[in-house]
Design a binder for these strands. Sequence first.
DNA 1: GCCACGATACTCGGATATAAATTGTCCGAGTTTATTAGG
DNA 2: CCTAATAAACTCGGACAATTTATATCCGAGTATCGTGGC
Lengths: 162, 162
Amino acid sequence: MQLSKGIEWSAHILTVLALVPPGKGVSVDALADFFELPGAYLSKQMQLLRRAGIVESLRGKSGGYRLARNVDAITLLDIVRAIEGPMPAFRCTEIRQNGPCGLQREDCKRPCEVASAFAEAEDAYRAALSARTIASIMQDAASNASPAHLVDIANWVQRQLA
Amino acid sequence: MQLSKGIEWSAHILTVLALVPPGKGVSVDALADFFELPGAYLSKQMQLLRRAGIVESLRGKSGGYRLARNVDAITLLDIVRAIEGPMPAFRCTEIRQNGPCGLQREDCKRPCEVASAFAEAEDAYRAALSARTIASIMQDAASNASPAHLVDIANWVQRQLA
DNA sequence: GCCACGATACTCGGATATAAATTGTCCGAGTTTATTAGG
DNA sequence: CCTAATAAACTCGGACAATTTATATCCGAGTATCGTGGC
């Protein structure tokens, strides 16, 4: 039970894409270099983000990716849903209907108590993730990082727009 | 990103083991039959529960498993930790230290903002799970089920103690 | 009747096998920009 | 100088492969109970 690496990658990359000026884009290979990630696999993750409407792509030469909406409108839950899909982590297989004391299907209109307990926990998880936006992540990171480091990143982004 | 089946199995099985009188045990094969589960694999899950101190085993003929503590002292979080292990679902690989703008290790004493955001969410998840005990699950299930069904289960348990 | 011994039934734990998900690579098709040739 | 054709650079998307995890099976070793036989 572990989250895909793509989620960590996406969260960090979106904070970088936030620095890209409108109308421009940064290529997957450049982003892969920035974090030393496998470019081809990162490309798959970016496609997932694109399908989810989090980023958009510009084709052709000097194309690339950029954010599709503002940083304060992108939550960590959006990223998880884009990469992992909407399925809950707990899968109820209705084993209460099995075996010698199994319930009849018509007695199982209410969800199983175990399943609903896990559903509540996942709701709490998702609520916490949806409360955190890329904007808030960037704010926290900026207040902890040195100004020089922030300038480094901004300069790197500028160089990618050639 | 999905939880092991063993977690669903364990939660249901512990509610059955709660009906086993002290000093007795129910075998893995019997439990597997009760829910139509693969016995050999269920055996592995029971071993995990045993190592976590949730159940204990009685060896030899007419042996089997029984609860190691009271149903109100077993939370769903205990089960998840026993089956899945203590590792968090989100794994921070410190990619902020990579690439042309990577941070130095000595500047990374604080946890990464992305990682701590996910850690908070998982804390909320675990808090919700630790608030639910096997006792509370049984209570909810009992109030939703028919009395006849509860008698069926109690009788089945009695038959396993031969 | 009582005790010792072996037989039996069960769990434990590891080794192993299979299925599925994750991670990663590669390449052709399509698209946009840049370049070049022709008028 | 301007336009159209061509080349180049890039993304998209799928097919494919490797690795890891989840799922599942099997069997030998150990242990407690049962049964049998001897005392």
